[in-house]
C-alpha cells in the first residue's frame, strides 16, 4: 500500500484517517453498476448503437468541461473549439491516411487529436488565468469563435461549410472495422471513455485534484500556502483540452465526417448544459447529463425540432431556479435526507 517508511507508530486516529481517505478513492457499487449498465446496453439495444456511441462521446466532452468547471471553477463556453480541432485532426489524418496504417490508425489518430487540442489548450490557458467569470466566459467564447472562423475559411483543408468528406479510419487495432450498425463504434467509444474516465478519476482524487478544488474554493489561501495556482490551472485546462480533442477525434472516426457544426457555439453550450443537468463536480454529472440530453433530444426532437429547443430552454430555466446541483446534486440531497432519518452516523 505504501512505499513510505514509518518511523513512529501511527496513532489510532491516523490509521482511521488513512482508511477514510483511501475509502474515498475506492469504487462504490453505484459506480460499478453504472459501467455495467453501459456494457449491457451493447447487448440490450443493438439497434441503437450509433446513438449510444454518440452519447459516450458527448459524455467525454462534458467530462472535459467538468474537469475545468466542476473542479477548477473555470467557467468556459469554448470547449467546442477543442472538440472541433480534435475532430478535424482525426478526420484529416484518416482522410489523407487513405485507410493505410499508420496515419489512419484510429488510436494514433486519437492521440494526435488530443495532442493538437491540448497544444491549443495550453496556449489559450494563459488567457483564462485571471478575470471574472464573465471575462473567462467571453474569452473562451472568443477563442471558440476564432477557431470556428478559421475552420470555415480554410476551405482547402477543412472543406468549409460542406464538412470534411472521405474520412476513412482503418480498423481499430487492425482488427475491428467500423461498421454501419455502430458495433465497433460503441465498444471503441465506450472503451476510450472508460479509460479516460479512470484517469480523470485518479486525477481528481489525487493531491493535484485536491489542489484544484482548493483553488476553486479560495485562490487567496492557495497562494498563501505556496501553491503555484497558475501552473495548476494551465495543467488542468490543457488536460481538459486533450479530453475534448479526443472526444472530437472519436466523433470524426465513428461518423466518418467532420463539419463546422462541431466547433459551433451551440456545441460548447450543449456540452455545458449536459454537465449542468447531471451536476458538475462529480465526474458522473456529464455522463448522466449526456444520456438524458441525447435521449430527450431524440424523443422530443422526433416530434419537431423546434419543440426540442423549447423544452431544452425550459429545463435550463427550471434547473437554475429550482434544482441547483443537477441530478447528482438532487440524488445526494435525497441520500443525505435518508441518512439523517436513519440517525446520526458519520
Amino acid at each position: 500500500m505504501t512505499d513510505q517508511t514509518i518511523s513512529t507508530k501511527p496513532s489510532p486516529e491516523a490509521i482511521a484517517a488513512r482508511s477514510v481517505l483511501l475509502g474515498r478513492a475506492r469504487w462504490g457499487w453505484p459506480e460499478i453498476a453504472f459501467w455495467a449498465i453501459a456494457v449491457a446496453l451493447y447487448f440490450l439495444m443493438p439497434t441503437k448503437l450509433m446513438l449510444l456511441s454518440e452519447i459516450a462521446i458527448l459524455g467525454l466532452l462534458a467530462l472535459s468541461i467538468d474537469l475545468v468547471l466542476g473542479f477548477a471553477g473555470i467557467v468556459t463556453l469554448g470547449q467546442g473549439a477543442f472538440f472541433g480541432i480534435g475532430a478535424y485532426t482525426a478526420g484529416l489524418l484518416a482522410r489523407y491516411g487513405m485507410g493505410e496504417a499508420p496515419w489512419s490508425d484510429p488510436l494514433l489518430g486519437l492521440l494526435i487529436s488530443g495532442g493538437v487540442a491540448a497544444a491549443l489548450g495550453f496556449v489559450t490557458s494563459f488567457l483564462v488565468l485571471r478575470g471574472s467569470d464573465l471575462t473567462r466566459l467571453m474569452v473562451t467564447l472568443g477563442v471558440a469563435l476564432i477557431v470556428e472562423e478559421l475552420v470555415n475559411q480554410m476551405k482547402w483543408l477543412t472543406g468549409g461549410s460542406d464538412g470534411l468528406q472521405g474520412v476513412m479510419p482503418s480498423a481499430v487495432m487492425g482488427v475491428w472495422e467500423f461498421d454501419l450498425y455502430g458495433k465497433t463504434a460503441y465498444v471503441y467509444s465506450l472503451t476510450v471513455l472508460f479509460v479516460l474516465f479512470v484517469i480523470a478519476r485518479r486525477i481528481v482524487k489525487s493531491p493535484f485534484g485536491l489542489s484544484l478544488l482548493a483553488i476553486k474554493g479560495n485562490p487567496l489561501r492557495t497562494r498563501a500556502i505556496g501553491m503555484p495556482v497558475n501552473g495548476r490551472l494551465v495543467l488542468i485546462y490543457t488536460i481538459a483540452a486533450f479530453y475534448a480533442g479526443v472526444a472530437g477525434g472519436l466523433v470524426a472516426q465513428t461518423t466518418q465526417f467532420a463539419s463546422p457544426d462541431y466547433v459551433a457555439f451551440h456545441r460548447s453550450a450543449d456540452a455545458l448544459l449536459m454537465l449542468v443537468f447531471g451536476g458538475a463536480g462529480h465526474l458522473y454529472g456529464g455522463l448522466i447529463g449526456s444520456v438524458i440530453f441525447r435521449v430527450m433530444q431524440d424523443v422530443l426532437g422526433n416530434i419537431t425540432p423546434q419543440y426540442w429547443q423549447f423544452w431544452l430552454g425550459m429545463m435550463l430555466v427550471l434547473l437554475v431556479l429550482f434544482i441547483r446541483g443537477g441530478i447528482i446534486g438532487l440524488l445526494m440531497k435525497m441520500r443525505g435526507r435518508i441518512m439523517r432519518n436513519r440517525g446520526p452516523s458519520a
Binding site: M1, T2, Q4, I6, P10, A14, R18, V20, L21, L22, R24, A25, R202, I203, K205, S206, P207, F208, G209, L210, S211, M227
Partner: peptide
C-alpha cells in the same frame, strides 16, 4: 508533492 496526480491523497500515509 502536490503535482502528484495519479495516486490518491490517502496513499501518502506520512
Amino acid at each position: 508533492a502536490a503535482w502528484s496526480w495519479f495516486r490518491p491523497v490517502g496513499a501518502r500515509t506520512d
